[in-house]
Design a protein around this nucleic acid. Structure first.
Length: 587
DNA sequence: GTTAGGG
DNA sequence: CCCTAAC
């Protein structure tokens, strides 16, 4: 709560309006333009990608089909197991451990799919997506920039590539009958974790006869968009961005079961639940909804089903149904056993802090949002570092043989609930009528001169593709210093704040400070239960609100200088500024 | 180079 | 933390 008294005090003594303070930028209209441009570019990118997907699909004479039924077909074999809460140790796959974010780049750099080509931005090394483009309308598509996976090369041909989440990289040989038919028998599985970190595999393809040069269509802007999308994986906040919405829904865990099946087994689970009432045990991966059964101070949950991360399957149409079933079964089994953990969402928000009590999280016996709780399976790794694995030199070398085995193939995908496709903010109803999940399979050709040499990419690539800085949460001490500085200097003078209070903190830019202040204001406004990370003392948050309110008011008055205001006071206060920088330094 | 704001 | 328009 903002104390009126405090505000008064700040206004009289603690806050200083700089004599040269400029009108707040908020008074300048510019955002609207940017937004329009951005959306437009998004649309262009989408169009391009639609073409790609359509091409790929059409080219391979395949049609999208749901393997939902196939998934159901393996239900009888579904795994019953407990899901350990504790995380399994991550596999040491990251090449650049100091920066887990590097994993966002493909083996030879960032890859994006543009008009059927995959471009490796960093190395100027591209693949091409086969023959002439076919436009297929009403086809939804996706891009998977930066993908991880292990190529399994058998008999010189790629076989099966499965990548499940961040911590599990599993190679599952396909046991299909078509292997003997001389048809490439490769199956790719893609999985997305709950944090929008995509894991998967892009198999480049070489069209031996047409080593054409891949035009670098899609200006850099588009590639940046794609890259940017990928980075969004670290974001914790849902926003209204069309792509964001898309990913939010499609990269989230996907209920492997469908309603039909669910109904069929519901009774079974009811029984089972009773048996385990009050127990921590979870004996099923099924069931989506969760309901409460209250009694005394205990919260009792019934998990009707579990979500597993979305899977993508790529398989030749000549493969047998049986092989596909086995493959899916293996994938699911692997998913459950290899480095996944349980995720919890309450009212649409992921609960990451394992130390919070259920009550603090909002899970209480008097909780009335019975449907607001959801469990999911998710990769045990939060960061996209697995993707890094493909940055290794060996991955690049493995690429070549893979590329040699170009062939048509089909892409199947798990059927999605239409409800999972929200209308985006552009007004596009899921982009297309029978929109399907994206099928970003990059088929390309190896461009001339593979610049992808072992252990040679890092320097050049790191220069070309600026690495995202690691996340460095602000300590309470830093927050304190920031609050103090803003109290004195106000918002809008972030450079001064930096110089005065964070001069020696190399890793804190004034933009960082500005951003932190933004989040602090937000944090101060939300309920303590909704806050995450190291708790900021309420006292500090109160100061944040006070200062924010005060300076906002100052800015308002500057916009509309109706009141003559106290010119002399400003001057007086400005003179004091010099004294303020001393004790604020934070390292 | 800074600032503001959306992502 | 990133990106970028507008200064």
């Amino acid at each position: 709560m903002v104390s009126h008294k405090c505000v008064e005090e700040f206004g009289n003594e603690s806050y200083f309006l700089p004599a040269n303070a400029r009108a707040p930028r908020s008074s300048r209209k510019r955002r609207s333009i940017k937004k329009i441009v951005s959306e437009d570019e998004d649309m262009r990118a989408i169009d391009l990608l639609a073409t790609v997907a359509g091409h790929l699909s059409f080219e391979s004479c395949s049609s999208l089909m749901s393997i939902d039924k196939l998934v159901n077909g393996i239900e009888d074999n579904r795994v019953k197991e407990e899901f350990p809460v504790e995380e399994k140790p991550l596999k040491p796959v990251a090449l650049f451990e100091e920066n887990p974010y590097q994993g966002s780049f493909s083996p030879c750099g960032f890859s994006s799919v543009i008009n059927g080509k995959v471009e490796n931005e960093a190395e100027g090394f591209s693949y091409s997506g086969g023959s002439d483009a076919c436009h297929v309308e009403n086809f939804t598509q996706d891009v998977k920039p930066g993908i991880d996976g292990d190529a399994v090369v058998l008999d010189g041909r790629p076989n099966v590539v499965v990548s499940l989440g961040s911590s599990s990289r599993t190679e599952v040989p396909l046991v299909g009958s078509c292997a003997s038919h001389g048809v490439r028998d490769d199956v790719n599985l893609f999985s997305r974790d709950d944090d929008e970190n995509f894991s998967g595999y892009i198999r480049p393809r070489v069209t031996k006869s047409s080593p054409r040069t891949v035009p670098r269509i899609g200006d850099r802007r588009i590639r940046k968009i794609l890259a940017s999308r990928h980075w969004k994986g670290g974001s914790r906040h849902a926003d209204a961005k069309p792509w964001r919405n898309y990913y939010s829904h499609h990269q989230r865990s996907y209920p492997i079961n469908k309603r039909k099946y669910f109904d069929q087994i519901s009774d079974d689970y009811g029984l089972r639940t009773k048996m385990h009432r009050g127990s921590r045990r979870v004996s099923s991966m099924k069931g989506e909804g969760v309901s409460f059964v209250s009694s005394n101070s205990h919260v009792k949950l019934r998990i009707k089903s579990f979500r597993v991360p979305e899977l993508f399957v790529e398989i030749p149409e000549t493969a047998t149904v049986g092989s596909l079933k086995r493959m899916v079964m293996e994938a699911v089994s692997t998913l459950l056993s290899d480095g996944h953990r349980v995720g919890l969402m309450v009212q649409g928000k992921k609960v990451r802090d394992d130390n919070k009590t259920l009550h603090q999280t909002g899970i209480s016996q008097d909780n009335t949002h019975l449907d607001s709780l959801a469990f999911s399976l998710e990769p045990s790794s939060e960061t996209p570092q697995v993707l890094t694995s493909y940055l290794s030199g060996h991955a690049c070398e493995e690429l070549s043989p893979v590329c040699q085995a170009a062939n048509m193939h089909n892409v199947l995908e798990f059927d999605h609930d239409t409800s999972l496709f929200p209308s985006d903010s552009l007004g596009n109803k899921n982009l297309t009528d029978d929109s399907k999940p994206l099928i970003p399979v990059a088929l390309t050709e190896l461009a001339s001169g593979p610049p992808c040499r072992k252990y040679k990419r890092s320097e050049q690539q790191q220069q070309q593709t600026a690495q995202r800085r690691i996340r460095r949460p602000f300590s309470v001490a830093e927050v304190e210093a920031l609050v103090h500085a803003v109290e004195k200097l106000g918002t809008g003078r972030w450079r001064d704040v930096k110089v005065c209070a964070f001069e020696d903190a190399e890793h804190r830019t004034y933009v960082d400070l500005k951003d932190k202040w933004k989040t602090l204001v937000h944090t101060a406004k939300i309920s303590p239960q909704q806050r995450r990370g190291e708790p900021v003392p309420q006292e500090l948050l109160n100061r944040v609100l006070n200062a924010h309110g005060y300076w906002s008011q100052q800015h308002m008055q500057q916009q509309q200088p109706q009141s003559i205001n106290n010119k002399q006071e400003q001057e007086t206060l400005s003179q004091k500024e010099g004294l303020l920088c001393g004790p604020l330094s934070v390292v």
